[in-house]
Write a protein that binds this DNA or RNA. Structure first.
Lengths: 148, 148
DNA sequence: ATAAAATAGTTTGATATCAAACTATCAATA
DNA sequence: TATTGATAGTTTGATATCAAACTATTTTAT
C-alpha cells in the first residue's frame, strides 16, 4: 500500500494499530474462554496493572490503561463483584480508593500473567527492541504534536 | 521509561497507540462541536471512507474501519437518519447494501475533510515518511505473528 | 483563615462495541 | 439441480465508553 503523504501514512498507522489491538483482544478473549474464567478483556487490563503494582487508586489505573475514570468505576465495580479486588480507603487522602488484589486476584495472576507475557513475546518475534523503541518514540511525538 | 524485554515494550507500544488515538478523537470531537455538526467521531470514520470511495458495501466499510459488522449496521443507521448517506440495493448481488453519499454528505466533506488531513499532517510533523512506514511494517508484523 | 481551584470518584444517559444467533442471497460442487 | 458452504446484513442482549454534571476532599493562593 503506497501512501502519497505523511497524513495518509499517519492514518494508515492508526489503522494498523487498531487492527493489532483487535487481534490481541480476540486472542486473549479466546484464552479466557478456554480457561473458563469469568472476566473480560477490559477487566484483565486492570488486573495486569495491579499485578505490576498493587494498591493504586482508580485515577492512576485509568491513566495507565488510558480509560475514562467513569469506565474505571464501572470496571472496578465488576472486579469487586467477582472477588478479584477490593476498594480500600486511603487514610492519607480520603479522596482515593486504593484498589487491592484479593487472594483470588493473585491466583488469577499465576494462571494468566505468564501466558499474557508470552502473547506479547509472540507478537514481538522478529522485531528488535531498538525498532520497537523507535516506534514508541514516533507515536509519542505524534501525540505531543496533537497536544499543541 | 526503560523496559526490560520485548514483551513489555510491545505492551508499552500498545499503550502509546491507544493514547494517540484518544487524543486524535478528542481533537476531532472538539472540532465537530466547534462547527456545530451533528455527527460523532465514529460516524465520521465511516464518512472519511466514503469520501475516499463512494458506494461500497457495509462489510467493506467494516473492514476498512476495523469495526464489527453489527456496529456498522448501527452507525449506517445513524448516518441515514442524519441524511449523510443512503442505502442502495446492489442489483448485481442482492446481499449488498451499497452505501452512497448524499448531497449533504458531500457538503460535509468540503467542510471537514481538508481539516482532518491537516490534523494528521500536524500529527506527522517532524516524522520522516520512511520512519512512519517502518512503524507500520513493525505493527503489521506483530499482527501477523498473533495470527499464527 | 478562607475562598478558589484542583483532584478523586460517582452517577446518568447517550453512544458504541461485541458475540452469537438469525435471515437472505450467492457460489461451489457433486 | 439440489445440497452444502460462504457471505452480507440484521437483531438482540450484554458490556464498555464517553461527556457532563455532581459530591467530597485536598491544595493553592490571597
Amino acid at each position: 500500500m503506497d501512501k502519497r503523504n505523511t497524513a495518509e501514512m499517519a492514518l494508515e498507522l492508526g489503522r494498523c494499530m487498531t487492527e493489532m489491538k483487535n487481534f490481541l483482544r480476540q486472542h486473549i478473549q479466546a484464552k479466557i474462554k478456554e480457561h473458563r474464567i469469568d472476566i473480560t478483556f477490559e477487566m484483565l487490563e486492570i488486573m495486569a496493572c495491579l499485578w505490576n503494582k498493587d494498591g493504586i487508586n482508580q485515577q492512576e489505573l485509568a491513566d495507565i490503561t488510558i480509560k475514562d475514570k467513569s469506565s474505571m468505576t464501572y470496571l472496578v465495580d465488576n472486579l469487586v463483584k467477582r472477588n478479584m479486588v477490593s476498594r480500600e480507603m486511603d487514610t492519607d487522602d480520603r479522596r482515593n480508593n486504593l484498589i487491592c488484589l484479593t487472594k483470588e486476584g493473585r491466583l488469577l495472576q499465576k494462571k494468566l500473567h505468564p501466558w499474557i507475557l508470552e502473547m506479547y513475546d509472540k507478537a514481538a518475534i522478529g522485531s528488535r527492541m531498538s525498532d520497537i523503541n523507535k516506534s514508541i518514540k514516533l507515536i509519542r511525538r505524534m501525540t505531543e504534536n496533537l497536544k499543541n
